[in-house]
């Protein structure tokens, strides 16, 4: 049996909000260590890997491994009915045909209970090895989100160029072009505002602005985003959870 209680529904609300526009159907794999999801978008350009470790829950138990096949839009409809500050408990039997979601108001005696039908989803679970990257950038997630939004107004592609101590986001469109340069920066008082660049080799890669604009829906999850890049390899965009992560592996665009 699975029983996972979040102190606040807001964490799962943000996670589902970040994923729902990229992937429609997901298997939520529940083990004693927590809940993990791996799903690839329909165009097979973006792979999402989610890990909510048991430590992200107030209480967590999962006696046997359970797979919950969930339709993200339906899950989102139910999740939106709960308040962000509600306690949220996920409950499923060992061979479940539904996932129960219980929202409890902390101040009042209000309990809202929902049941979501499960689906059989045929999905491969890939073993993603640790990858080696030539460049790693840690930067404020809100700053990254603004750059992705701004650059998308110019072009459907966004070029990321990394040299010694700066990252250049470059966009070449039909009616004009634009770029934003971010330099290494340490804010000792507000560490979440810092920009850190670790570089083995210079990087020049291009990505679809549409996918980056899906990825930045994770911004409310973490104050910093980690961007890991290497030539001829999927880029990794990572948002840390209190215990776990939400990762996006994005294919680069190649020259014609």
């Amino acid at each position: 049996m699975l029983e996972g209680k979040f102190d606040e529904a807001s964490l799962l609300k943000k996670v589902i909000d970040a994923m729902k526009d990229s992937v429609k159907l997901c298997n939520f794999n529940c083990t004693e260590n927590g809940i993990s999801v791996q799903a690839i978008d329909d165009s097979r350009v973006l792979l999402i890997s989610l890990l909510i470790e048991a430590g992200s829950f107030e209480d967590y138990r999962c006696d046997r491994n359970i797979v919950l096949g969930l339709e993200m839009e339906s899950l989102n409809k139910i999740i939106k009915n709960g308040n962000a500050s509600d306690m949220l408990t996920l409950v499923a039997e060992d061979s479940p045909d539904a996932l129960n979601l219980i929202f409890e108001d902390k101040r009042r005696d209000r309990i809202a209970e929902y049941s979501l039908k499960l689906m059989d989803i045929d999905q491969d679970f890939l073993k993603i090895e640790d990858m080696k990257f030539d460049a790693v950038v840690n930067m404020p997630s809100a700053e990254f989100a603004k750059i992705c939004r701004d650059m998308k107004t110019l072009s459907e592609s966004l070029q990321i160029i990394i040299t010694k101590d700066s990252v250049k986001f470059n966009s070449e469109g039909d009616f004009g072009s634009g770029s934003v340069v971010i330099k290494s920066f340490t804010d000792l008082e507000k560490t979440e505002e810092s920009v850190r660049i670790t570089l083995e080799k210079p990087i020049n890669l291009t990505f679809g602005a549409k996918y980056l604009n899906d990825i930045i829906k994770s911004t409310p999850l973490a104050s910093q985003v980690t961007i890991k890049l290497c030539d001829k390899q999927p880029a990794l965009f990572e948002y840390q959870l209190p215990s776990g992560y939400l990762r996006f592996y994005l294919a680069p665009k190649f020259e014609d």
Binding site: V45, L126, P234, K253
Partner: peptide, 14 residues
């Protein structure tokens, strides 16, 4: 441009 199924093939390469 995107190479079709590149990401899928990348993670299935072995």
């Amino acid at each position: 441009k995107y190479v079709q199924n590149w990401l899928w093939r990348y993670f299935h390469r072995d």
